[in-house]
Design a protein around this nucleic acid. Structure first.
Length: 155
DNA sequence: GCCAACGTTGGC
DNA sequence: GCCAACGTTGGC
């Protein structure tokens, strides 16, 4: 089992939006970055655990945990002309972009803030806090995952 | 809203 | 293949 961090702007799609979705599950569509695409297509598997991160908002940090319930498959929004994520270079025969399905699993008792992560020695190597790192889908280690869960579930 | 740091595009 | 211009991300 592997561990990941997914970023979302809560104004677009929040952790609560995930919880309130049908079956608390959603297609993680719209990722248009090749590095992230490769993770979605090749490496993220059913059962993998996901830290759900809110970016670009007043409260930046990890909200809780989701679980992968379907591994990589083509992102159909790429060939929907009316979609925000339309990309004419992706076709059903030769899809360029991929997505996975994730299901809401557990809300932390409190937000684990970006600032707090930056201030935690054990989390200094997280991709999230590396200078210039903007990947919206990124791997985290088991140790990092467990540390953040511990921080989020303790008062 | 600002802006630094990236990633992508496209002319050459 | 280089690189300038442009668009995007995301913290602040």
């Amino acid at each position: 089992m592997r561990y990941w961090l997914f970023k979302s702007e809560p104004g677009e799609f929040s952790f609560d939006d995930l919880k309130n979705s049908p079956q608390s599950t959603t297609h993680w569509h719209g990722v248009r970055n090749y590095q992230a695409r490769n993770f979605l297509r090749d490496e993220i598997k059913v059962g993998d655990q996901v830290l759900f991160y809110h970016s670009s908002s007043e409260n930046v940090g990890v909200m809780g945990v989701a679980e992968v319930v379907k591994a990589g498959y083509p992102d159909a929004t790429a060939w929907e002309v009316e979609s925000l994520y339309y990309d004419p270079t992706s076709t059903p025969e030769n899809p360029r972009w991929f997505m996975v399905d994730i299901r809401w699993k557990q809300a932390f008792k409190r937000l684990v803030t970006l600032q707090e992560i930056k201030n935690t020695p054990a989390l200094q190597n997280m991709k999230l806090v590396q200078k210039g790192m903007r990947l919206s889908v990124q791997p985290v280690t088991k140790e990092e995952f467990e540390k953040i869960c511990e921080m989020g579930t303790r008062p």
